[in-house]
């Protein structure tokens, strides 16, 4: 079948790729671009491990055709830190022990980032609800939620400082 020319940015880098229509954004990120930080946990949109942001909104990249991402700005976990400087969410996940096996972590961090940017003052209950699309099987969520709440505070103070 005819491949499609798809142009988008991933973590601010421009990509122009010829892709089969059937390839998902997840498959292209992992297999064509080699950004394997985004994980495939279920391929049906039910676990959130493949969460990336597209034009600032979190999506399950396993349920989006790469062709549909044409012209968009995509952010993955690899684009969150610049050099050795980590995003507040990354700091908080380390400090609070918000991960164990780590497989769900990129998805959790990306989903939290999009949510906190929209809702900087979210309550714990709101965060728990908003992250319902991300499954973690190791932590029981307690330390993830602590990490996100602590990151929210860091992000608020960073915003105030600016």
């Amino acid at each position: 079948m005819k491949k499609h020319l798809v142009s988008f940015t991933v973590n601010n880098d421009q990509y122009d790729l010829l892709v089969e229509p059937r390839k998902t954004l997840l498959a292209v990120l992992r297999d064509s671009i080699g950004l394997t930080g985004t994980k495939e946990g279920c391929s049906t949109g039910d676990c959130g491990a493949c969460t990336v942001t597209v034009d600032g909104k979190s999506v399950t990249s396993c349920l989006m055709l790469a062709a549909s991402a044409n012209g968009k700005a995509i952010k993955t976990i690899e684009g969150l830190s610049s050099g050795s400087s980590l995003h507040p969410l990354q700091h908080a996940f380390i400090d609070k022990g918000g991960y164990q096996c780590g497989f769900c972590t990129p998805g959790f961090i990306m989903a939290s980032k999009a949510f906190l940017e929209e809702n900087p003052n979210a309550t714990e209950a709101e965060v728990r609800h908003a992250l319902g699309g991300n499954i973690c099987r190791c932590t029981g969520y307690t330390k993830i939620i602590e990490a996100v709440m602590s990151a929210a505070e860091l992000m608020r103070s960073a915003r105030q400082a600016r």
Partner: peptide
């Protein structure tokens, strides 16, 4: 490596 997506599974 776990929070930056660098960990290889």
């Amino acid at each position: 490596e776990k929070v930056t997506g660098a960990a290889k599974y």
